[in-house]
Nucleic acid binder design. Sequence first.
DNA 1: GGCCGAGTAATCAAACTTGACTAGTCGCGC
DNA 2: GCGCGACTAGTCAAGTTTGATTACTCGGCC
Lengths: 197, 197
Amino acid sequence: MSATKLLVLGIVHLSGGAHGYQVRSELQNWRAEIWAKIKPGSIYHALKKAAADGLLTEHAEPGNSGPERVLYRVTAQGRDEIVELVRDGLRRTHDPTMLDASIAMLPMLTRADAIAHINERVARLEAELVHQAKWREHPDRDIPEHVRDQAELWAGHARTELEWAKRLSKRLSEGAYTMADDPGSWRTAPDPLQMRF
Amino acid sequence: MSATKLLVLGIVHLSGGAHGYQVRSELQNWRAEIWAKIKPGSIYHALKKAAADGLLTEHAEPGNSGPERVLYRVTAQGRDEIVELVRDGLRRTHDPTMLDASIAMLPMLTRADAIAHINERVARLEAELVHQAKWREHPDRDIPEHVRDQAELWAGHARTELEWAKRLSKRLSEGAYTMADDPGSWRTAPDPLQMRF
DNA sequence: GGCCGAGTAATCAAACTTGACTAGTCGCGC
DNA sequence: GCGCGACTAGTCAAGTTTGATTACTCGGCC
């Protein structure tokens, strides 16, 4: 699941550098254990992996009180990765966790970019609904009846998501939220993360 | 994810004994790679694990053509486990994959049992909707605006699922599907799986 | 008759997740 | 002045998932 990766990178970015426990508690604040099903162990693993991949830098901090801590910061490559992951999560259907994570990190994109990708999602959902409708007229007959009826539930969820995505797209074009290219965002604010290490 | 476990056990049960590849192709027929995200490797692992846990028995078959195959059969304990997993999946919210798998294996339950557990789901979903509505009136203010707006999507999904679960419950009480206590089900049919090994 | 692609059947190492466990600090009541 | 619970910070082994890879058969066609 790359939702963990996205959330961890995103939180470190938003906090402008953080150590494991900070990420963990921030995610707890956001109730992410529920919708993203993230457990402590995965967070520390994701941080180390991301550091090994060059998306984060590690700074050992002497334990002036308490045990040693490691401070992580997002690299330029890491920021690009976050943006790419958010785009991917918005586009890709059938992965609710990744969608939730992407929404959480939506302000990493510029307004136009976000709208474009949400609209792509809308288009995909519409295509899937058409496809499903066709399939239900001519179902495979070697599949049990109740398995075919599941399709109703999927279609319902697809319609719900469609409505919601359309509303979100509309709200964005009306100027809701502070996006990456708006004044006051992480991008226009003085940003310590521009530094390379 | 115990959805894999449930599907694998369920398919072996429905086929009255099967080897890995049969399970794999049957799941492909049901398009389970899409909604349950099952990959070949996991299937073989799940089979071995279940056998080690006493839910399946293994019968080595000499490769009379092609490589060696292992035939699996569900034990009495395995059947109980399937029933328990289906009940669990129906009850538990926030786990769509497990719900899908449970629906696929719904006829493992008696009609009354299935209805009872689906009704429990309905009650839980209603409680969650009430809880969410309250939370949206008094949101935590340290959470970004767009994260709070995600709740709309969750609520939408919950409502969709609620409607669907109610319909399913109704259909079941009207006699839809062949359940475990109906004539023609795996339970009333002569069943080779009753044998112990 | 020999090779190629499709289908059958499975293994394996690497990556990832999980839950339980460790270990230190801090305040507070007794 | 000490024991206890809560908070901070993280490690670790065990379990699971994944994607790539292996290996064998069979039918067809050049």
